[in-house]
């Protein structure tokens, strides 16, 4: 079943159009990746899904049309977003950051359970739970962003370049966790990446974007064999 589907999706900032009618789909329970160079429109695509930019065209989530809905309402449908720039609440503690991730679900005992759950995935966050978010390192803040999105118990997790600026070991760790979450909790994932080799290793389906258009798409295994992609993104 298709969980998220975009048809002829356009997006603009002010007068500047940056997405020129793209189509893509995310399978329920699957991992889909969007690749592309700087400025291709990957982040804008995720923002469009979350109602953070003006859009035209159609986006459907679990069968309903969601264009034009407020971000706050889309979150309540179960769309969790670890955004570009990580979106840390720098003056709030790590634990407060995480609690905010569960805000849309309302409080209650389940929040405590979920804190335990994400601390299980990211033990270093547990060690730093009383520390202000802004004092974490870049990689730690990236983990915090993913963990905050998980606190929502999302149906769909949007990840914007989680590997950006991280040491290879940390990248591998984050992607291992993403795979676990996807497999064990059946969370569908839309992953935006420039690190094509890792992303194509993880995803079942991939899209390649260039200047606001999808220029190639297919099963990840196929894109990995594609010469153009190998030369431009994989470097071999």
């Amino acid at each position: 079943m298709v969980l998220l589907e975009a048809r002829g999706l356009e997006a603009q900032y002010g007068w500047t159009k940056v997405l020129h009618g793209i189509d893509f789909a995310v399978e329920e329970g699957g991992i889909t990746t969007i690749l592309g160079a700087n400025g291709a429109g990957k982040t804008t695509t995720l923002r469009a899904v979350c109602g953070m930019v003006r859009t035209a065209g159609e986006i459907r989530f679990a069968g309903q049309r969601i264009n034009g809905r407020a971000t706050e309402d889309l979150v309540r449908l179960g769309i969790g977003h670890a955004p570009e720039g990580r979106g840390t609440f720098v003056n709030l503690t790590v634990e407060e950051n995480l609690r905010l991730g569960a805000y849309a679900r309302g409080g209650g005992r389940s929040v405590a359970q979920d804190l335990e759950r994400v601390y299980g995935y990211f033990p270093m966050l547990a060690q730093r739970k009383k520390q202000p978010g802004g004092t974490l390192s870049g990689g730690e803040q990236q983990m915090l962003a993913v963990a905050r999105a998980l606190m929502l118990r999302p149906r769909l997790l949007l990840l914007d370049e989680p590997s950006l600026g991280l040491a290879p070991l940390v990248v591998r760790e984050i992607f291992r966790i993403v795979r676990t979450i996807n497999r064990d909790e059946r969370v569908s994932v839309l992953l935006v990446e420039q690190n094509a080799s890792v992303a194509l290793g993880l995803a079942q389906h991939a899209y390649l974007m260039e200047t606001g258009r999808v220029v190639m798409s297919g099963p990840a295994a196929e894109l990995r064999q594609n010469d153009a992609i190998r030369r431009a993104y994989l470097g071999y």
Binding site: M52, E72, P83, G87, L92, L100, Y103, G107
Partner: peptide, 23 residues
């Protein structure tokens, strides 16, 4: 309180707050 926390969050970082579902 959760509401108090959400208010502090909204004051600091409105964009992230919306992504957490805070009005």
């Amino acid at each position: 309180t959760t509401l108090g926390l959400a208010m502090r969050a909204a004051a600091q970082n409105p964009v992230s707050s919306r992504l957490c579902g805070i009005r």
